[in-house]
């Protein structure tokens, strides 16, 4: 009788465990389960050509379709960016004047983590000392040093200064030293030069990476906040990074307003 009671209790606990495992989100389960291949140098292999789906670049938060781009669900945990009061007003001003102020419209360097969810592909290559992220958008290159070096001092960059390390199968990248001139999206969501970004890249299958970025900026936000996205591999064997030098399109360049009478096009 006693043994039978234990069996019932054991079965009950087992059932709880099984039920519990279903509660875990499918992505987290995949993260735990998938063992990614390693490069010839023994690093978790993140190499390939990747791109997001969805319209996080239009607005990180839930948004309807507009001339800015397609509708999309929030990619921000909790669905809110925790702005300080002044910053919430500033974001509204940015939004109102986005046609003029958004760097993407002028094809400027995009900042981080926006580089990751621009609607353009990028290629990750890895050596033991560096992860280089090669973007089709404006030929941006991100150099993530994985050689145990420290961030530089007293310098600011559009793309920040990135140093990375591997935690198990995850590439963790800390980026600081931003110039405060980039936005998170076309909706005017912004940060200051005190932004710190921690990105986590984890393979969850042969052709998918779970991407997380946590933003900390005491000048602008009341607390750190996080976004999560899936990166999809371009599996076309012919795929390669081409170019999108949008700043070199004819209609974007100052000087292209030269009066026609002065032009003498070449044969």
């Amino acid at each position: 009788m006693e043994a039978s009671g234990r069996t019932i209790l054991g079965a009950f606990l087992l059932a709880l465990l099984v039920a519990g495992s279903f509660v875990v989100t499918s992505v987290d389960a995949q993260v735990a389960r998938y063992e990614p291949p390693r490069t010839v140098d023994g690093i978790p292999d993140l190499q390939g050509i990747w791109q997001v789906m969805g319209s996080a670049n239009v607005n990180l938060l839930a948004h309807s379709a507009s001339s800015d781009g397609p509708a999309g669900e929030s990619v921000v945990e909790g669905g809110v960016i925790p702005y300080q009061d002044w910053a919430a007003k500033k974001q509204q001003e940015n939004y109102a004047d986005r046609q003029k102020l958004d760097g993407e419209r002028n094809c400027l360097l995009s900042g981080v983590p926006r580089a990751t969810y621009l609607p353009h592909p990028f290629q990750i290559v890895q050596t033991p000392d560096m992860v280089a992220i090669l973007h089709e958008y404006a030929h941006m290159q991100r150099r993530v040093y994985t050689n145990k070096t420290s961030h530089l001092e007293d310098l600011q960059f559009y793309l920040g200064d990135s140093r990375g390390r591997y935690e198990g199968n995850t590439l963790v990248v800390d980026t600081v030293n931003f110039n405060g001139e980039t936005w998170f999206d076309r909706a005017g969501n912004f940060h200051s030069d005190e932004l710190k970004v921690e990105e986590r890249y984890t393979r969850i299958g042969p052709d998918h990476i779970q991407y997380e970025a946590t933003m900390t900026d005491p000048k602008v936000f009341t607390r750190p906040w996080k976004l999560q996205l899936t990166l999809y591999r371009n599996i076309d064997p012919k795929a390669q990074i081409l170019d999108y030098q949008c700043y070199a399109f004819e209609d974007r360049t100052p000087g292209m307003t030269v009066p026609l009478s002065r032009q003498s096009p070449l044969p």
């Binding site: 190499q47 290629q123 050596t127 560096m130 280089a132 290159q141 390669q240």
Partner: peptide, 29 residues
């Protein structure tokens, strides 16, 4: 010059340009 497995990558300073040069015998575009 970076040498990830199977390729040579050139990261230029000026204009943050780069080139990914695959070393397999894949055809041109």
């Amino acid at each position: 010059v970076l040498q990830p497995p199977g390729a040579v990558v050139i990261l230029y300073d000026v204009h943050h340009e780069f080139r990914y040069i695959p070393l397999d015998s894949r055809p041109h575009l």
